[in-house]
């Protein structure tokens, strides 16, 4: 069923929902952007649907709700340890289709990779329900169509934001009661059907081609362009890497916690091993790794779809103006050229 819901009414619903749920949505942090007098849009708990930024892409993805940037796993003393705890609240996340698909990719990594469920991910993920936000425009860095991530049926509510009214589709019966007295309307969520940016994916059929792709000259461009900052992987909804370390409290050197913190394959020390040995030593190596991970490796391993969902945040956040969609297209052109040479 779909309903026309005023902002005021939706805020009342939100107030009710917040008794059971932590409700996360992209919101604006004024003047907190990378550059002076620019805003930062990222996920945080909301108090009003008026806070939800639905008509601009968020700088960061919703992954930080269930894969926190800094996450304490357990606390330890000299003789004992205690697992970290989370509260009883369920989680409701406002998200666009690409992000919901992105979180499915994270599910694969955290829950299905190596037949080992990550309990710290799972305990948050199990709580999540999605509120689908309609994409009212196709932003110029989006390429969800090319990645097949423009659609989803994994949502409880779907919302189209208007000036002073929302169109709400209720898919999950749990939420039907909140809207029973509202005006029924004929609203069905419209998925984006075209992007300005079209990405052609590389067809890498065998290991021989893969080796040639490794040696492509195009990667070397990034030695001068990429500054290894890792803004791309931080913004990416599907990047899941973290580093685990023990933190010892300074007031008592025998007490501390084990925590994990996001890591980035774009950082120089990402592949550093004991003894200082490292095997992706240049920005070019790291750029190649990330690109292939997103549009080759993951699918090679898990079979169904590519890791990248085409949200385009890596492009938006790159302060060196490196476009990931253009990078993929360049790669595909090169692969096609190599293919012709073979034939």
């Amino acid at each position: 069923m779909s309903y026309a819901v005023s902002i005021e009414k939706m805020d009342k619903v939100l107030k009710e929902l917040k008794k059971k749920y932590r409700v996360y949505a992209p919101i604006r942090f004024e003047k907190r952007g990378r550059y002076s007098d620019t805003d930062l849009i990222r996920y945080a708990e909301i108090d009003s649907v008026k806070d939800v930024v639905y008509n601009e892409k968020s700088d960061f993805s919703p992954k930080e709700v269930i894969h926190p940037i800094t996450q304490t796993l357990f606390h330890f003393t000299e003789y004992e340890y205690r697992e970290s705890q989370i509260d009883d609240k369920e989680i409701l996340i406002f998200a666009h289709p690409c992000d919901i698909n992105g979180i499915k990719r994270l599910d694969t990594i955290f829950l299905e990779n190596g037949n080992n469920e990550d309990v710290y991910y799972k305990r948050l993920r199990d709580k999540v329900k999605f509120v689908l936000m309609e994409c009212q425009e196709d932003w110029d860095t989006c390429f969800c169509i090319s990645m097949g991530s423009n659609q989803t049926d994994d949502y409880s509510l779907a919302i189209k934001f208007g000036e002073d009214q929302l169109s709400v589709e209720v898919k999950d019966n749990e939420f039907e009661g909140f809207f029973a007295s509202e005006e029924e309307i004929d609203f069905t969520y419209k998925f984006v059907t075209a992007n300005q940016e079209e990405v052609n994916l590389p067809k890498i059929d065998d290991k021989e081609m893969l080796k040639k792709v490794y040696d492509l000259k195009m990667w070397e461009d990034y030695n001068a362009r990429c500054k290894d900052c890792g803004a791309c992987t931080s913004a990416c909804v599907t990047c899941s890497c973290f580093t685990t370390s023990d933190v010892i409290y300074s007031e008592n050197g025998r007490v501390g916690e084990r925590r994990r913190v996001w890591a980035s394959c774009q950082h120089e020390d990402f592949t550093e091993m004991a003894g200082g040995h490292s095997f992706r030593n240049t920005p070019a190596d790291r750029m190649r790794f990330r690109t292939l991970h997103k549009v080759y490796d993951y699918k090679e391993r898990f079979g169904e779809e590519h890791m990248c969902v085409g949200c385009g945040r890596c492009t938006d956040r790159c302060n060196q103006l490196i476009s990931f969609s253009k990078t993929i297209n360049k790669l595909t052109e090169e692969v096609n050229r190599l293919q012709k040479e073979v034939n």
Partner: peptide
């Protein structure tokens, strides 16, 4: 220190370079 950043507040020039390069928006003005 311990995987995070500490700052000597005495002599920060207030330039904002840290925010410009921060990948996660941990530094803001």
């Amino acid at each position: 220190s311990q995987g995070k950043i500490i700052k000597d507040t005495c002599c920060c020039a207030g330039c904002g370079e840290c925010a410009t390069v921060c990948p996660t928006g941990a530094w803001t003005r």
